[in-house]
Simulated scan of single mutants.
Amino acid sequence: MTEILTPAIFPEAFRDVDHLEDFMSIPTQGVIDDLNALDGDIIILGVGGKIGVTMARMAKKAAPDKRVIGVSRFSEAGVQERLNAWGIETIACDLLDRDAVNALPKVKNVIYMAGLKFDSSGREDFLWAMNTLAPQITAEAFKDSRIVSFSTIHVYPWSNPLHGGVTESSPPLARPGEYANSVVGRERTFQYFSRLHNTPGRIMRFVYAIDPRYGVMQEVAAWVKAGQPVPVATSHADIMWQGDANAQFLRMLNHCETPASPINVGGPETVSIRYLAHRFGEAFGVEPVFEEQEQDTCLMVNCDKANGMFGNPVVPMDAMIKWVADWVKNDNPIHGKPSKFNVRSGEF
């Protein structure tokens, strides 16, 4: 029988990476119901990143009779083997290679997670290729499927955190920095081909995901533990547990529209960076140090629409804080890929 995610099975802490990833891939009843009601199998493009591995595993747990196919370059050693061990088919593929993408199994349900964000200085052409050309190749190859595509809240203007967050009615904005602009290009590419081929889709404007190995909480906790000043100019952040993000991505396959439409994905509450630092300071027995002054704006979105479909995420803020504090306190492994939530220039 498939284990179902509820607060009753929350651990006090995570023993190791295997324990963490097993927990993050436990489906909710909603994921189980939606995936089993969905016609066709599932392919996840860009599965080898921080989020895709546990998402694919959750899909397989929720719908063990469906094919779940993970596609990536698989540049990180061991990822392909781990996915295979969980019953997930894997295919190594460069999504900029049109012939290779055209040769992929044409299943009914596509989750597109590929893209480039950080460390693109000096290779901006590759940034634009990954964020616009690869979506074009995918949209043409999978024109007869449903496509749920990864996007970001970085397409929105910054706003006052007291005003409830930016909604989907706000058009994507050309902001400073090539990353945000290229992601607007990714969205518009998927929308164009969705309209051209009547391909159902959704564009997931996604907040900062976290697990104890990466993300806003891990960064703030690490700064506090090391006695480093915590930057608070960006005073608040939208945060979501990675397992809850997995669930909403998968369930959105049942809520696609033609042409593909955007939807904000995240929790119902925002968190103060200063508050986080004090919570971690209490856990570590240290007094946090701060730098900068809180500014009037931050990158804040309103996720009521998605949460109205699916209900609020299962994992609340307090549980996330406790799990991250324990992980960082015990010097457990991290991804080493900062979110850069505090960067206000748009240059990552």
Rank of each mutant, 00 (worst) to 15 (best):
S194W: 00
K108Y: 08
G87D: 12
T167Q: 13
T54N: 01
V207A: 08
V166I: 15
A8H: 11
L83R: 07
A56T: 01
Y156D: 12
E81A: 15
D144G: 13
H335C: 10
I111K: 00
D18T: 09
G281Q: 04
F341I: 03
A233Q: 11
R82E: 15
V155G: 04
R186H: 15
K337G: 07
G285S: 15
L20R: 12
F249R: 08
A319K: 13
V207H: 02
Y275C: 05
A319F: 09
V31H: 04
E12M: 05
V314K: 00
I321S: 04
A114Q: 03
V148R: 01
N36R: 12
R186A: 15
Q80D: 13
D144P: 02
M240N: 07
G164N: 13
E291K: 15
T2K: 14
T28L: 00
E287K: 14
E178N: 11
V216C: 01
A283P: 05
G165S: 10
V328M: 01
P268H: 09
A277R: 02
A139S: 14
A37C: 06
P288S: 14
D125W: 07
I263H: 01
H278N: 11
L38S: 12
D326V: 06
K322N: 10
R98P: 03
M317A: 05
V31R: 02
K117M: 13
W223V: 02
R251A: 07
K340C: 09
A325D: 05
V265Q: 03
E187M: 02
R82A: 15
D296S: 14
R67M: 15
G266Q: 02
K60T: 00
K117I: 06
D99W: 02
G52P: 03
F310D: 13
P333I: 08
I137V: 12
D318P: 07
T138R: 03
T234Q: 13
S159D: 10
A180S: 14
L276T: 10
A37R: 11
P64H: 11
V71H: 04
N312F: 07
D34A: 14
V101H: 03
I210N: 13
A13Q: 14
A209L: 12
V315P: 04
I91G: 04
A139R: 02
G78P: 01
S339I: 08
F14S: 09
M55G: 02
N36F: 03
K106D: 08
L38I: 08
G336T: 12
K61F: 13
F150R: 15
Q191A: 10
Y179G: 03
M130I: 00
G49Q: 03
R213V: 07
A103L: 11
M309T: 15
E12V: 05
L104H: 06
L253V: 04
M130W: 06
G46R: 00
D211G: 08
S25T: 10
R202V: 15
T270A: 10
I32L: 13
I210A: 07
K106F: 12
I44R: 03
I239K: 11
G346D: 05
L253M: 12
L133G: 00
F10K: 02
R251L: 06
E282M: 07
A37P: 03
F284E: 07
M204I: 14
